[in-house]
């Protein structure tokens, strides 16, 4: 099966000779087992349970930080495994990084106003 994909890639690559034929269908060769997905899902459900539990304990301002950290971990799990960032080309990873950095900048600069008013 993966051999078939590879041959398809090769022929396309030769046919249009665009030089990026090797990237073609890059994420497609990777077969992730059903089991892996289930484990990730279990992790996500467990993290949801943890975040609900932590919210019940009175930790003051730590509650928000803990909730956001857990949400970030969950997002990473979804992104890395379900959205296949793990198998994506470097360029997509760079794109995501650029987007997140710019989004973070919006926050920092806006709060440079709000928190010093």
């Amino acid at each position: 099966m993966s051999e078939q994909t590879q041959t398809a890639e090769l022929t396309t690559g030769q046919a249009h000779a665009s030089g990026h034929g090797d990237e073609h269908a890059a994420g497609h060769g990777h077969m992730v087992s059903y089991g892996t997905y289930f484990i990730v899902w279990l992790g996500l459900v467990a993290l949801t349970a943890i975040t609900v539990t932590i919210a019940g304990i009175h930790l003051g301002s730590l509650t928000l930080i803990a909730a956001m950290l857990i949400a970030a971990v969950k997002t990473t799990l979804v992104g890395y495994h379900f959205m296949h960032i793990k198998y994506d080309n470097v360029i997509i990873k760079v794109f995501i990084l650029v987007c997140l950095v710019i989004f973070l900048t919006f926050w920092i600069l806006t709060f440079s106003d709000l928190s010093f008013r």
């Binding site: 900048t105 919006f106 600069l109 440079s112 106003d113 928190s115 010093f116 008013r117």
Partner: peptide, 18 residues
């Protein structure tokens, strides 16, 4: 260009730091 939008708001009542 992403980092300078506040210069449109110098007299809007933004914080001095900002």
């Amino acid at each position: 260009g992403y980092l300078v939008w506040g210069h449109h708001m110098f007299v809007s009542g933004m914080s001095d730091t900002s």
